[in-house]
Each structure stands twice: as structure tokens, then as C-alpha cells.
Amino acid sequence: MAEPGKALGRLGVWTSTDRLDAAGLKSLLKTIEGLGYSAFWYPESRGYESMALGSFLLANSTKLMVGSSIANIYARDAFTAQRGLATLNALHGGRFILGLGVSHIPMVEGLRGHRYDKPIPAMRAYLDGMEKAGKEKLPVVLAALGPKMLELAAARTEGAVPYNVTPEHTALAAKILGPGKILAVEQKVCLEPDRAKARALGRAELARYMTLPNYVNNWLRLGFTEAELANGGSDRFIDAMVLSGGVAAVKEGLRAHFAAGATHVAIQPVVAEGDHAGREAALAALADS
């Protein structure tokens, strides 16, 4: 089985998958693998179930590390998560990384009908349950934003997969995680030289996240003000969340995460709905970042 930290490589791709059918997913995997990216990350929301989708992605790729970003701990019990992780790695050459997260109240209470517990105790208990289900050393990382969840990630897992963050957060996360840990950071990119158009695309992409307290609280910790997070987000906020402009400017922004301590950056192209050609053009332009 490959060592996940080494196999993960430098650059990956993060993409929402629920609106892609089997043919679309296969095409995207072929593109990503052909461009030399080392990993593919996908979320779990209202559509595809995480483990089943992971199996499909692994079966339709040959070299890519595949990672959940994230699998919701309220979607399956800890025993099932551990055995699913073990199964996918046993059947697909150790290419799966289980990214776990506590998700958000609407996705837990509103959608699934569970009670949303305090994040740190809930995640700690879940990791305890996974350990009881199997002692194999398997790659688990946490969707950690705040210091306490990052500390838990450092103590109990291979590392962290922060989402919607800045290089300043990356530096803080790297310090808390310490050496030898995975710090796989998602970063939105928009290869659109017209700043107004890029910001409009960024606001549309970020709108669903700006109502969720876990993200809002982290942005406030990072120094953004409530005023900057109101009415779709200030220009400064949008520019920080979505790297935009030409290829050189976006690559410079990606390098800032590595300079801050990221071990891996997952690029998420921000394009108009259904613009698969634009998504693939962005991935091609940034593959050597």
C-alpha cells in the first residue's frame, strides 16, 4: 500500500461531482490524470454517497489518489467508515484517503434528521469508533479549520484538508499540525482577466458557504469583518477566496500556500455553470504550478 503523504503529490483537483453523470466523471478523471495531477478530491452533499462514489472513481482511474473532502461523519457510523476505507484501499492499491468532517447543521439536522453535536467531541468519538473497528494504519485526514480541530487532526490522523481558507490560515494550520502531516488545502481559481466577471463568478460559487457558521466563524478568526461577509462578500474577501486573473497571477497565489506550509494544494476551477471546457482549460493551464 502506498504511503499517502508521498503518493498525494503536490497538486490535485477538487470538484463537486453531484451534477456529473458516469460519462462526465470518467471524462474528468481522464483529463485530470492525463494532465499529471496526483489526486482527485470530491465532497459529499445531497447526491452521490461518498464511499460508493469513491469506488467508482478508483475503478475508473489508474494512478490518482482519490480523497473524500469530505465524508460526513453523520452519514455512516464509525465502523462502516473504517471498513469502507479498508475495503477501498485493499481493492484499489492503497489509493484512497478518507477525509472526514462534521459537516453543517442544515446537512445533518435538516437533511438527515440527526442531532448535530459539538464538533470536537463528536469527531473524537468517531475516531475512537474507527479504531475499535480495525487497527490497520489507513489514511484519514480531517476537515479542520479551527485550532482545536487541527490539534485533533495532528494527534489522531494523517493531517487536515481545510476548505475555503487563505495562506494565512495555511500557515497557522501547518504550525499546529507540525512536521510529517498532510496539509491538503483546497483553493478556488478563476482564469478570468476581467476582475468584475471573476468576482461575480466567485460570489456565485461562495454564496452557499456564506450562510454556514463553521465557515463564517473561521473567516472572522482570519480577520475578515462581518461587514466584509455581508451582501455577497466584499471585493477583498472574494479576491482572497478565489484566485483570479491571468495564469501567472493565479500560480503566484497557489505558491503562497506552499510557502505557508501546505504539502498539497487541490485546485477548484470556478467557471460558469456547465462550462466544462473552461474548467478543463484552467486545469491544463495550471497543471505545472
Rank of each mutant, 00 (worst) to 15 (best):
T225G: 01
G180T: 08
V165A: 09
R195A: 14
M210N: 15
L212S: 00
A173W: 07
M107G: 07
G134W: 09
G180L: 09
G232F: 04
C190L: 12
D128T: 04
L138A: 06
L212I: 05
P119T: 04
A125C: 14
E226R: 11
T211D: 14
T166K: 04
A173I: 06
W219C: 07
R221V: 15
T166F: 03
P213Y: 03
T157G: 03
D128P: 00
V161W: 14
S234V: 02
T211V: 14
H169Q: 07
A171R: 10
L138P: 05
L145P: 04
P213G: 06
L98W: 08
E136F: 11
L191K: 01
V141K: 03
L152H: 02
K175W: 07
A196D: 13
A204F: 13
H169S: 01
D128S: 04
A200C: 06
A227F: 13
V140M: 08
G110V: 01
G202P: 10
V189Q: 05
P139H: 01
I182R: 06
E168L: 11
M149D: 11
W219F: 15
E109T: 14
Y215H: 06
A200M: 06
A173L: 07
S234I: 01
D117Q: 14
Y126D: 02
R203Y: 07
V108S: 10
L145T: 03
C190G: 08
E168I: 14
V161S: 13
G180N: 02
E109F: 09
A184K: 00
L138R: 06
A230L: 00
R115L: 11
I120M: 10
W219D: 04
S234Q: 00
N217V: 15
K197S: 09
I120P: 00
Q187D: 09
A227M: 06
L127T: 00
P147D: 11
G159T: 00
T166Y: 06
A155Y: 11
L172V: 14
V102L: 09
L142P: 08
R156Y: 05
E228P: 00
M123W: 10
L206E: 04
D194W: 09
E136R: 15
R221G: 12
G233C: 02
L229R: 02
V102D: 09
M149I: 13
